[in-house]
Simulated assay, not measured.
Amino acid sequence: MSEAKSVVEVTAHDVQGPGVVACPNPNMPLWSNHPRVFVDITHGDGGRCPYCGTHYRLKAGETLSHAH
C-alpha cells in the first residue's frame, strides 16, 4: 500500500540536545520540508518523524555519551 520510508543513520555528532535529531534534515529536498520536529533516537531502534515517517537511528558503533 505505502512505499517504504527512508532510514537515516546518524552519528553521535549529528545528535542535538538530549538524544534528538531534527527533521527535516539538511539532506532532504526543499519540496519535502515540513515543520521542524525533534525525533528522539535514544530508545530501541531509533525514532520516526511524525510528519514524513523518516526513521532515524544511530549508526552501528556510535554511542551517545549524554543520552538519558
Rank of each mutant, 00 (worst) to 15 (best):
L64A: 00
H43W: 06
G17H: 07
C52H: 04
K59G: 03
D14H: 12
N25R: 13
Q16G: 04
G19K: 08
L58G: 01
M28T: 14
E62V: 04
C49K: 06
P24I: 08
W31F: 09
H43P: 03
A12R: 08
D40L: 10
T63L: 04
Q16F: 07
M28F: 05
V37S: 03
T63G: 00
M28R: 15
L58W: 03
M28Q: 14
G44C: 01
M1Q: 08
Y51P: 09
T54K: 10
P35E: 04
V15G: 06
D14A: 06
P35S: 00
A12K: 05
K59Q: 07
H68M: 12
G61C: 00
M28E: 12
Y56A: 07
N33G: 02
P29S: 13
R36F: 00
W31H: 11
R48Y: 07
Q16P: 00
S2C: 06
N33V: 13
T42S: 13
V20A: 03
I41M: 05
D40W: 08
R57F: 00
P18Y: 12
C23M: 07
G44I: 05
M28L: 11
W31V: 14
G47M: 07
A12E: 00
V20W: 01
V39T: 08
T11E: 06
V7Q: 04
P35C: 02
P29Y: 09
H43R: 14
P35D: 05
Y56P: 08
L64D: 00
A67R: 14
G44D: 06
I41E: 03
L58V: 04
G17C: 01
D40I: 08
M28K: 15
L30P: 05
H34I: 08
G17T: 05
P50A: 02
A60P: 06
H55N: 05
V10R: 12
K5I: 10
R48K: 11
G17R: 12
P29E: 13
D45T: 15
Y51E: 11
N27A: 12
S32Q: 14
L64H: 00
G53H: 02
V7P: 05
H43L: 12
K5W: 05
C23Q: 09
V39N: 02
H43T: 14
P18Q: 15
S6F: 10
D45E: 14
L64T: 02
V15Q: 02
E62R: 06
W31T: 15
D45A: 13
G17F: 04
L30V: 15
N27C: 03
L30A: 12
D45L: 13
G19E: 03
G61F: 03
D40P: 08
C52M: 09
C23Y: 05
